[in-house]
């Protein structure tokens, strides 16, 4: 890992971390389109996927500007390979059942919302602006996912069992959201992006509150996976990108 990080290079990395995470999660959520358990949830999930992909356009658009090599959001989204992606590992976890999708969403939203709140205070006006816009959408995502986790966790025997299983499976991917590396520290010191570890107290309090109400128990002392932010991904990302990118790969620059 580099120890001395140029601010613009760090900013490009930091913006890709935000944009790739919303892109990968947005694509994952969109995989439910037409498959959700009921029509109402289908539309709700599709709305959320579109929110996330809209945010991706802003984050990756800015990343392309900062990089200054003529790559726009589409080029970054569709012309990079898995090892160039900087998304959190949590975002690329497969959808699993509906409970797993919801749990992933909640664990992420509980981080995303306070992170955007912190980014609203960025010294870089472009970042503050994107964070403010995205924050309004994510406030609703969090309200919805927290509510559903409580309902299903404290629901029937079957729904409780599934939510607990989802929590056990996903928990080891939560730590990465709050781990800071040199890039994060460079950005935090410059006041342009909040340090991931500064989000931990808010995240922990929120998650503890909701899991308590949902009668779910977080695993203790679980090993935490990391590497997504540095480009080391699970096998799942490649498969997802193959689906997501095939059109631009097969027909470069194809337009509607």
């Amino acid at each position: 890992m580099e120890t001395v990080v140029d601010l613009d290079a760090a900013l490009f990395e930091g913006l890709c971390r935000m944009g790739d995470t919303t892109l990968v999660l947005g694509h994952r959520v969109s995989e439910w389109c037409g498959h959700a358990p009921v029509l109402e949830e289908d539309i709700a999930l599709a709305n959320m996927a579109l929110d996330l992909i809209g945010q991706t356009q802003l984050w990756l658009g800015l990343a392309g500007d900062v990089e200054g090599k003529g790559r726009d959001a589409d080029a970054l989204a569709f012309r990079r390979d898995a090892w160039e992606f900087r998304n959190l590992l949590l975002a690329e976890r497969p959808n699993g059942d509906f409970g797993q999708t919801l749990m992933r969403q909640f664990l992420f939203d509980a981080w995303h919302q306070p992170m955007l709140k912190a980014l609203e205070g960025s010294k870089d006006a472009r970042i503050a602006e994107i964070a403010a816009k995205a924050g309004r959408e994510v406030a609703y995502h969090l309200e919805r996912s927290a509510d559903l986790v409580i309902r299903l966790g404290d629901g029937t025997e079957e729904s409780h069992k599934r939510m607990q299983a989802a929590l056990d499976t996903l928990w080891p991917y939560t730590g990465e959201m709050m781990m800071a590396d040199d890039v994060d520290r460079t950005l935090a010191e410059a006041g342009v992006m909040a340090a991931p570890d500064s989000i931990r107290p808010t995240w922990e309090a929120l998650v503890a509150e909701v899991l308590g109400e949902a009668k779910l128990k977080a695993p203790e002392g679980a090993y935490m996976h990391k590497g997504g932010k540095q480009g080391t991904h699970s096998e799942h990302l490649g498969h997802m990108l193959a689906t997501m990118q095939w059109l631009q790969r097969a027909y470069p620059d194809a337009k509607w």
């Binding site: 009921v38 029509l39 109402e40 539309i43 709700a44 709305n47 609703y140 919805r144 509510d147 309902r151």
Partner: peptide, 20 residues
Amino acid sequence: SLHAPDAEMAVKHARDVYTR
């Protein structure tokens, strides 16, 4: 009209289905 388990969820669903 739409389906929902209770009033609170009905408001959320209505938000997603009818005010997008």
